[in-house]
């Protein structure tokens, strides 16, 4: 059976991607953040997953207000980087895993009754590619196959935290029912606290971010009860992206071990956070 070997929660800030693409990681503004991300690259190099399922949101690049899928699973053989107005990022085309992705679609829709949207043609924007860059650097090809899972968090209402956690748990069952021996890492991306719009633009709430990470590890069911209005109020209008981390958390099973965490304020307009989790309680390790 295939196995989920770990989870990564991380912000997906476009300016981080631009800093990598333009070789600016050594600049005074960026160096402290990129130094903090080194353990994430070491963990990824050591973990060597075969597949990464990346939960993220599209920012008016693959989808628009014409059609707004709540959960959209990419089943394509490859996913090119999107042109977000500056030309596509100079990153590899992500190779998909259509066989496993279709298996996930079947199991999630038939067994757990998640009404997924299935997507055959989908460029991936910074929401998906920046987390890959942060954890892999600048390889010629991504060192694993990628299954993108796109979540609507831009048009209110996004899915609830409870639904996201339940989807993650269903993803775990679906992966474990796949006869292949793939080792899978799940990414939950977006956040942490930030607000791009309105008079309150520039919001950061580091205590909220820290408490969110603590609850994500220790009591995801409690965190899943937190209503959207609390995220909007405390973590900012774009901080609601954090519900996507609950999908990653659900996919890791009940008990997890926290392997690494970073917080860094700011990257661009965002409180940047990253957490690495593995399945199983610390005592079992």
């Amino acid at each position: 059976m295939a196995r989920i070997v770990g989870g990564v929660g991380t912000s997906h800030v476009p300016a981080v991607g631009a800093a990598i693409d333009n070789g600016r990681q050594g600049e005074a503004y960026w160096a402290p953040y990129f130094a903090k991300t080194e353990p994430a690259r070491a963990w990824m190099a050591e973990t060597k997953p075969d597949v990464c399922l990346v939960v993220y949101n599209d920012h008016a690049d693959a989808f628009s207000l014409e059609i707004i899928p709540t959960f959209a699973l990419g089943v394509a053989p490859r996913f090119p980087p999107a042109d977000e107005g500056y030309g596509p990022r100079r990153v590899p085309v992500a190779e998909g895993h259509p066989e496993l992705a279709w298996h996930l679609a079947e199991r999630l829709i038939l067994d757990d009754e998640f009404d997924l949207t299935i997507v055959n043609d989908m460029p991936i924007d910074h929401g998906c590619t920046v987390p890959l860059s942060v954890t892999c650097g600048q390889p010629e090809a991504w060192p694993f196959r990628v299954i993108p899972l796109c979540v609507n968090v831009i048009q209110y209402p996004p899915p609830t935290g409870r639904r996201c956690l339940a989807l993650g748990r269903a993803i775990r069952r679906a992966v474990e029912s796949w006869p292949g021996d793939e080792r899978v890492v799940v990414f939950g991306t977006g956040g942490m606290s930030h607000q791009l719009q309105g008079e309150r633009a520039g919001l950061v709430n580091l205590p909220f971010d820290t408490a969110f990470m603590d609850a994500l590890v220790a009591d995801p069911d409690a965190q899943a009860q937190v209503p959207h209005a609390t995220y909007l109020r405390e973590a900012g209008s774009e901080g609601i992206e954090l519900v996507m981390w609950l999908i990653m958390r659900g996919a890791l099973g009940d008990a997890v071990t926290e392997r690494y965490r970073l917080n860094h304020v700011p990257t661009s307009n965002t409180s940047n956070g990253l957490i690495i989790l593995e399945s199983g309680p610390p005592a079992d390790r």
Partner: peptide, 10 residues
């Protein structure tokens, strides 16, 4: 932003 961003009550 460099000084820690805007508080949520702002």
């Amino acid at each position: 932003m460099i000084a820690g961003g805007r508080p949520p009550t702002s």
